[in-house]
Write a protein that binds this DNA or RNA. Sequence first.
DNA 1: TCCACGAACGCAAGCGCTTGCAATCGAGAA
DNA 2: TTCTCGATTGCAAGCGCTTGCGTTCGTGGA
Lengths: 358, 358
Amino acid sequence: MNRMATTVESVAERAGVSISTVSRALRSVPGVSAATRKRVQEAADALGYSASPAASRLATGRTMTVGIVVPVLAKWFFGKVMGEATQTLREAGFDVLLFELATRGQRERFFSGSHLHGRTDGVIIMALQPSAEELESLSAQGQAVALLGAEAQGIGSVSVDNIGAGRAAARHLLNLGHDRIAFIGIREEEGSNLGGVPPLQRLLGYREALAEAGVPGDGMLEQFDENSVAGGAAAMSRLLVAERIPTAIFVASDEMAFGVLKVLRKAGLDVPRDVSVLGFDNHELCDVVGLTTMDHEVAEQGQDVARILLDILQGGPPASLARQVRLVVRETTAPPHALRSPSTHPGPPDSAGHAGNL
Amino acid sequence: MNRMATTVESVAERAGVSISTVSRALRSVPGVSAATRKRVQEAADALGYSASPAASRLATGRTMTVGIVVPVLAKWFFGKVMGEATQTLREAGFDVLLFELATRGQRERFFSGSHLHGRTDGVIIMALQPSAEELESLSAQGQAVALLGAEAQGIGSVSVDNIGAGRAAARHLLNLGHDRIAFIGIREEEGSNLGGVPPLQRLLGYREALAEAGVPGDGMLEQFDENSVAGGAAAMSRLLVAERIPTAIFVASDEMAFGVLKVLRKAGLDVPRDVSVLGFDNHELCDVVGLTTMDHEVAEQGQDVARILLDILQGGPPASLARQVRLVVRETTAPPHALRSPSTHPGPPDSAGHAGNL
DNA sequence: TCCACGAACGCAAGCGCTTGCAATCGAGAA
DNA sequence: TTCTCGATTGCAAGCGCTTGCGTTCGTGGA
């Protein structure tokens, strides 16, 4: 294939038409007879021709590319969401440009410069709450915007009811009979940039549920750390030195919950006999460790946000929708030890009843 | 910012020079005096100008973009490697275009069409072995190529000594005293497209070590399935109905190993007392479940492959390098039960000696 | 003081495609 | 048969930037 010279001109020549006709025919623009359209298509196929993106972008001003910005790629949640979004975008004929904003510095540089201008038609922003100025900067660069895990006035977005989810999670633990329930949340690190809003909302829901149940709050029972296994482990370690260890813990992310389980195991505490643990995300590995968690339709969110952006790019209004959150009960939650009736008690700790998680 | 009208021309006007001088000044091309260069730079800053990528691509033929193609985004390994590669590429001023080739159909479409032509200067291909024709197609599209987890004549690549790693893994189990060691490998699914080569090499290394140790091979002990928790679980289930259950299992991927651990737990078998399990990747969650595994410097591989591609793009020769693989001993490998001396025996299964993984 | 030469800079021709507008053609209306 | 109008098609002017080449100007050497 002599792709070096495969341009509209060669196709036009081979099909015996002008280059404008080729351009129109190949893009299904009206004003070309079916016969010539077919002839052009054949010529293009024969030559293995495909229009130069740079040239058509320059001429049209459209890039047929969308950017996806994520805080970090190496996390299951973002990989999953990105994968789904990417597939949806590609089906619609868009390329996907990747931006990983791992540090605050990168975030600032990204929004201050015009890194998107002329590169993308729109951008999906995941898990970070853009400020008004940042949104302004994006629209000044002519970008359509869709948010995931955040919301803003007049901007398309997909999210979940984190307050409701937090309340539901806490209620599950309350209903089991717990009254000393800790919360481990995501702390916005100095070097990181995770949007602090959803984690905060989960905390609020947790507090609401406790208040409604008449359980007194306890600041010591609220711990925050970075969203990782290590962060969860660190937060749990802090909880272990409390005056009284909680009997249940709601952790705002599964990865942190994995760290929590690890520390509990090392401390010789049995889950769920001594402590119940409830996570958030329904990470693919929850099933392996038997972690009870809050599922929030992660894959669907990825498709949603892509479709919302595509709609906007086609001139539609910026839609906003919320996905469902539901409890997935596995093996890390149970009534507190003191409450169990002999019949529910699993018997000797080493028997099959021993959940053995982690 | 009136970005709508911010073009070379406006900068030229403001700086009182011609557009060619602006172009040269902003790109540090020689032939511009320091004084005017400064003046142009200031004018550009004041206007918030940045050159239209489409226009400069059309004029130069370079896109300053590289493509990354991965089989699937939602896996820790690929997320990690991509994150590192992306950062390295961005530092060098390149944009990153994402291609997820989840199915065989997508792979075929990708390589048959000229999806890269004019979009990227080069491409990083992860974990799939391109055929000669596929490589030909890429170079016909003018792409520089770097491979990760695969090798090809004259193509830049980064990989690991999978045969050696497989041998090392098997030897660790042999050295512990095992003589009935199973292998669970990655099967190339119909719908998938993972390069079959590295997994195959791990199998070969395993076989070599067994042969060297005089342990007879047993086809029944070699099982293959898709590279996922579910796949590992399925493969393990097949092993459970063997005439004699193996006392140790080398699993070619950590995610599969997690599935293996899950099935073993459900079957009431203790790890490592009844069965030892050895994984591959050093997945970030290995630490949580205590999985002994083979680490192969995943993050470094990502940086390596990006740098290799950057070198090629700068006219350098296509480098190939291999990363180290090393055993990371955790809690899922131990001598077979029958061999243990009373003193090493952890005592009653429910004591603290019970590793309790999964 | 005059000339030659190199450094700075501007001109203008593209890069390959899109698209408003004019030109052409065929067919139905008069 | 001639005229009019819509459907096709071609022309050519960009889109915004890069770059080979010619021009201008200042400076050191003769």
